[in-house]
């Protein structure tokens, strides 16, 4: 494998089923040691794209190269570089954890019993590995799923919505685990999600997909402009307060409900805005920065300041 070439290279990938275009003209690259986010709302084509990446679905057009090997022509070589969990970690519930791992190990070459023990230790399942999978909690299944993905020492780990169904503690644990993996083993990780916040916390770079097309590719930190934070105001009285706030040059209104007013504004000018409102006899009863949502992001990307 060429050292400088990307681990995963997707070019002009399209999938049509019948006349319906599920995914169209997708291009991106994942570099070595990078955590790459794949962000998009449900139904945008994320899962279809991931299934094409792992060889479950044939692309209608376009190419996928993994570690330099074209997936369509050199399936065995290409797929050997990948470890993946597509959707939920579905393993055989009537086998033990170890039997599941052995099962998949037999489908690869050169996986020793030691390697299995090593992986089991890595995902911290040592104690329960010889019990039936049907007795596992969702978190444990998730870890076993990661174990099977890592079994063949892949160059890239593909995770489809890995935080689905996990509790906040589980999500934090998973995040730390992925960081550790990238740090210690130097592998690349490709994570899909529909939650912007999650991608922001985990990823280096991101591709955003909407309605089957890529709308943005680039570093995550460029994605959300710090000066454009969504702020929730609670004012009394609300109508005159809203007017006063919107007069300020750095404020962009988003929407107004019966209780709250939402605007975009730089977070470091909240104090200034608060002073202005107090000066006009308007009581400020609450100010809160709100986590930007994917919806906000689309609004930003399409440049609109109003509701879609």
């Amino acid at each position: 494998m060429n050292q400088t070439s990307p681990v995963l290279e997707v070019k002009k990938l399209s999938k049509r089923i019948g006349k319906r275009k599920i995914v169209e003209d997708i291009t991106f690259e994942v570099e070595k040691g990078e955590i790459f986010g794949f962000l998009g709302p449900n139904g945008a084509g994320k899962t279809t794209t991931i299934r094409m990446l792992v060889g479950l679905i044939r692309p209608t057009e376009g190419t996928i190269r993994i570690g330099g090997y074209p997936l369509q022509d050199q399936f065995i070589e290409a797929i050997s570089q990948i470890g993946c969990i597509v959707e939920n970690p579905e393993l055989y519930p009537y086998l033990t954890g170890r039997e599941n791992l052995e099962h998949f190990a037999r489908m690869m070459t050169g996986i020793t019993a030691n390697r299995i023990n090593e992986i089991v230790h890595l995902v911290e399942l040592d104690e329960r590995i010889d019990e039936l999978v049907k007795t596992y909690s969702l978190g444990m299944r998730q870890r076993l799923g990661i174990a099977q993905a890592l079994l063949g020492s892949p160059k890239i780990l593909i995770l489809d919505e890995p935080t689905n169904g996990l509790d906040p503690a589980g999500i934090r644990e998973l995040r730390a685990f992925i960081r550790k993996l990238v740090h210690e083993q130097g592998i690349s990780v490709f994570i899909s999600s529909h939650i912007l916040h999650e991608i922001q916390l985990m990823c280096d770079r991101v591709a955003i997909i909407n309605k089957g097309k890529i709308v943005y590719t680039g570093p995550v930190h460029e994605l959300v402009h710090e000066e454009e934070t969504r702020i929730e105001w609670k004012l009394d009285p609300l109508p005159s307060g809203a007017d006063a706030l919107q007069e300020l040059p750095f404020v962009r209104p988003i929407e107004q409900t019966e209780e709250y007013l939402y605007v975009y504004m730089p977070i470091d000018r909240i104090a200034e805005a608060n002073e202005q409102l107090t000066a006009k006899q308007i009581k400020v009863t609450g100010i809160r920065p709100v986590q930007a949502t994917l919806e906000d992001l689309f609004l930003q990307l399409t440049g609109g300041g109003t509701k879609p």
């Binding site: 792992v54 065995i76 597509v86 393993l91 998949f104 489908m107 099977q148």
Partner: peptide, 14 residues
Amino acid sequence: SSGTIKLLLTRPVR
């Protein structure tokens, strides 16, 4: 129906 087909077919086996 158990979803394990996805694990089975993403191995280096034809």
